[in-house]
Design a protein around this nucleic acid. Structure first.
Lengths: 361, 361
DNA sequence: TTCTGGCACTCTGCCTTCCAGAGTGCCAAG
DNA sequence: CTTGGCACTCTGGAAGGCAGAGTGCCAGAA
């Protein structure tokens, strides 16, 4: 499937390389690296020069490929487990592959339809996240992680005040991402219905559509609009609201596909344990996703991951959100030896559709 | 540690056996089984007659033990991996061990204090459950599962309807446990403010204070109170509400300690995959805990578990709750070769303390 | 220069063989 | 019923051998 593209691709690579002035990596050497990565990802076995020439028509002999391999090894892109074994890409090799040799593989039309269909059935935010994470795990056959839309980046869709008792008010905050937060407010005295209605409508006018962090500023002057006798109540409600807003708390995370870890590799128990441990720590996962760039897809390969337990895994993550704003991150965690183009394609597609779903609801 | 108890225990066993008329299992044979289970759990290796006599002072020769072992094997309590290997307890053997040979090992005072201290820091329900599950995983070094307190007994605190768009209504349900659920309702036509207000107040009168499962019955006649033209809208809202109520009854579950699976055994990847798969399925876990008896601890050993993937695991579970009522279940999942007395002790202790915490809050 | 075929060399992975050790079942005697 | 003795079986690990795959290097060709 790659032969058809090779001519164009090579030229493209050559151009890019020239731009970047990377001398020692000529066109063919990069093709060799790409072939190694592809083969290794497919077979999970070190790949040798002969097999490489057979499977990819590189147009040169094994001996030549061997020379290129030696050069690639010198530069640290590939590595030999033992003398006289095939080569395996290093983290640096994967990095180069991802940066310049691979293109995100778009989902096929049926796949896109399936994603759409699967996510469309969701009834609420929890369900959206749950479906997303499972879908992602299934598509990539890896461990999927989805962060709940964070409060700090979303906007106010609605605020509701409900009198539960003479001096008790329930404050409900609904964000554009579908998240609902509620707080019970103990008021200093009985609250009149009319005051409550007034406050409610003023809150709505002042806050709806605003990003959460901006709301306190916008409502600062509010108590002044009320009778002095009502101000304590208004202040308490406002304080509670601000508190709720400020608690951009508990970034929650959902996980799926841990069973896919069993396909990790041969030296399996050694690799899997730290990974499972990492996955149990919400903090680690949050930091992991936190490292994701705000725009564009982030790929962290092997040792590029801060957390040691994930040194033999790669993390592909991306922000998602309604509209252009990214409100949270999602991603997958798999062995460094993963199908990067496919994984990146799946992650990107899923993120896009979740964003749409969120925007619609 | 067992020798000190052996005299009393043996008599007790003998008595119990007489009561149950199990002839072929005399006192010593049971002691042998107990020793086998203990040793196997400790070493993870098939245990032979000689080693058994050396480690436990059974007061007889290896040859005698061999005879007993042969008998135990005939009865299906133990099993030989290969001719001329030691013996391994079967599920049936563990069952007998748990039923009659083991006693729940109480936690030590420092352990109890640690449990108490660890759980006391919890700030809300989520936190209680999260702490509990982690604690349990740590104590038992196995996979822990905690079910959220059942909501079927909680009541409606408030229902709110908010018009977001001409034909879109946000339905918010708040329970007395502080849980908030919201749904977006697509109405068949434009909804008038007055209709909405009317519906809202009727919902409140009919539902507030009622246990969730009773709400549908109480609101059955509601559409009849409205103009025929409004009934479709009312019906849609009601349907959504009932759906939400029903979903509230779907219990949630929290999980921890999956990393402990790596200590499962030698034939590791084969065993662990189905287990991980099972753990991902909330449904499976819920069914698993659902099988727990309402009172007392339940131990399901190996093939006693309905779910096939858990055929080589044992599940120790127990109900917990505030006061005498069990509101939910918790438990651990581990290899059939687990320390039953210790695990049961930990599970029981944790359940007890969680109950107390819930009662206090 | 750059590529290529050839060649000697090295290493793994796998298979076989072999042996010690642990464990058993059975039997005859206490 | 228990026990010591004995012959037998089976695993697990060590040692050795062999085929296959892969490499590096070199000298000659393009």
């Amino acid at each position: 499937m790659y032969s058809e593209r090779s001519a164009d691709e090579r030229k493209a690579d050559a151009r890019r390389l020239d731009r970047r002035e990377i001398r020692p990596l000529d066109e063919r050497r990069l093709a060799v690296l790409r072939a190694i990565v592809q083969d290794y990802v497919g077979t999970e076995e070190p790949v040798g020069s002969k097999a490489l020439v057979e499977r990819h028509n590189l147009g040169v002999s094994p001996a030549t490929v061997r020379n290129d391999m030696a050069a690639l090894e010198d530069d640290g892109f590939i590595h030999q487990p033992h003398t006289s074994a095939g080569r395996i890409p290093t983290d640096k090799g994967y990095r180069l592959f991802v940066d310049r040799l691979a293109e995100v593989k778009p989902m096929s039309a049926p796949e896109r339809r399936a994603i759409r269909h699967f996510l469309d059935g969701a009834v609420d935010l929890d369900d959206v996240v749950a479906r997303t994470v499972r879908l992602l795990a299934q598509l990539t056959r890896q461990v999927a992680v989805v962060q709940y839309p964070s409060l700090s980046r979303s906007t106010v869709r609605h605020i509701e005040l409900v009198a539960l008792a003479p001096a008790k008010v329930m404050l409900v905050l609904i964000t554009n991402t579908g998240r609902v937060e509620q707080r019970l407010v103990d008021c200093p005295g009985t609250v009149g219905e009319s005051v409550l209605a007034d406050l409610r409508s003023r809150l709505l006018t002042g806050a709806v559509g605003r990003p959460l962090p901006e709301v306190p500023g916008a409502l600062e002057e509010l108590p002044a609009a009320f009778e002095p006798s009502d101000r304590p109540t208004v202040s308490v409600v406002l304080a509670t609201l601000f508190e709720t807003l400020a608690e951009q708390n508990e970034e929650r995370i959902m996980l799926a596909g841990t069973a896919n870890l069993t396909r990790f590799g041969h030296d399996f128990p050694l690799t899997i344990q730290p990974v499972l441990e990492a996955l149990e720590e919400q903090v680690v996962l949050l930091r992991l996703l936190g490292e994701t760039a705000d725009a564009g897809m982030t790929v962290r390969i092997g040792h590029e991951n801060e957390y040691e337990g994930l040194n033999s895994t790669s993390v592909v993550s991306v922000g998602y959100g309604s509209g252009d704003q990214s409100v949270a991150k999602l991603g997958v965690i798999g062995p460094t030896r993963m199908d990067y183009p496919g994984t990146m394609g799946a992650v990107r597609a899923v993120a896009r559709y979740v964003g749409q779903i969120l925007a619609e609801s």
